[in-house]
């Protein structure tokens, strides 16, 4: 074993050991900083969301080569052309559906599993569907290890999870140009659905869909306010 490999293994073992020690999580500081500077500072004040974001080890939901950026203020690649959303987007999406402890939430697009983990910290039951089998399997392993109130299904999210519905809220993390009719059906009266719209690399436009008495409305949230300015004379 080369010296470099020994050092890498040694450091890895040290971090693993530290993360299992009470108060010894090496990322705890980064996480706190993330919550204070990226989330609270931008106006997120939903206490359960903030607490969840401070608890869930985001670094465990990103690939090993991205762990050093886990708490950075941006989305990160997780393979298969997918990303783990920017922490602020996750917090915002969570706050906007105003999750309550008794809620049953459906997530479409498990991806890394991070959004499901945040929800699992707050609500009674989370159902999450991932279409890419490899992502679904790895997220399922991690979520099952950390939580007992998350069910993961590897399937086409189009059909939703009919036998588990209706849901108090639906979080669509992997946005598409179509909101599948079955998902609308599985949303409770008065329920909320949140969907990101826009390039995964840019500030996304989040959209809230509300269903009241068979009337559907959408609300664009977090608009990208574009400050007009004049050309210099």
């Amino acid at each position: 074993m080369s010296r470099k490999t020994r050092i890498t293994f040694g450091l890895g073992a040290l971090f693993t050991w530290l993360s299992f020690q009470p108060g010894g999580d090496p990322y705890a500081g980064s996480r706190k900083q993330m919550v204070d500077e990226q989330i609270r500072a931008r106006g997120i004040d939903h206490a359960p969301t903030l607490e969840a974001m401070e608890r869930v080890p985001r670094h465990r939901f990103v690939p090993a080569d991205q762990q050093r950026f886990a708490y950075a203020d941006r989305p990160l690649p997780i393979g298969y052309g997918q990303t783990i959303s920017q922490p602020y987007i996750v917090a915002y999406m969570t706050q906007i559906i105003d999750p309550k402890p008794h809620y049953k939430v459906l997530e479409i697009g498990t991806g890394s599993g991070y959004q499901a983990a945040i929800l699992a910290e707050i609500v009674d039951k989370v159902y999450t569907i991932e279409i890419v089998p490899e992502l679904g399997r790895s997220a399922s392993r991690l979520l099952n290890e950390l939580y007992d109130n998350v069910s993961v299904k590897i399937a086409d999210g189009y059909h939703g999870w009919e036998e588990a519905g209706p849901f108090d809220a639906i979080v669509v993390t992997a946005a598409a140009g179509t909101i599948p009719p079955p998902l609308i059906e599985q949303l409770k009266e008065g329920g909320k659905m949140i969907i990101p719209v826009g390039s995964p690399y840019l500030t996304q436009q989040l959209m809230l869909v509300e269903k009241r008495s068979r009337r559907y409305t959408t609300r664009s949230l977090m608009p990208v306010r574009f400050v007009p300015f004049r050309r210099s004379e």
């Binding site: 409305t217 609300r219 664009s220 949230l221 608009p223 990208v224 007009p228 300015f229 004049r230 050309r231």
Partner: peptide
């Protein structure tokens, strides 16, 4: 379909009214 930002509508109206600055600023 609600939007919290009405600037798009305002800009569009200025374009329709052929306000030359609508394209410039």
């Amino acid at each position: 379909n609600m939007t919290g930002d009405t600037q798009y509508f305002e800009r569009l109206d200025r374009i329709m009214a052929r306000d030359p600055l609508a394209l410039e600023d």
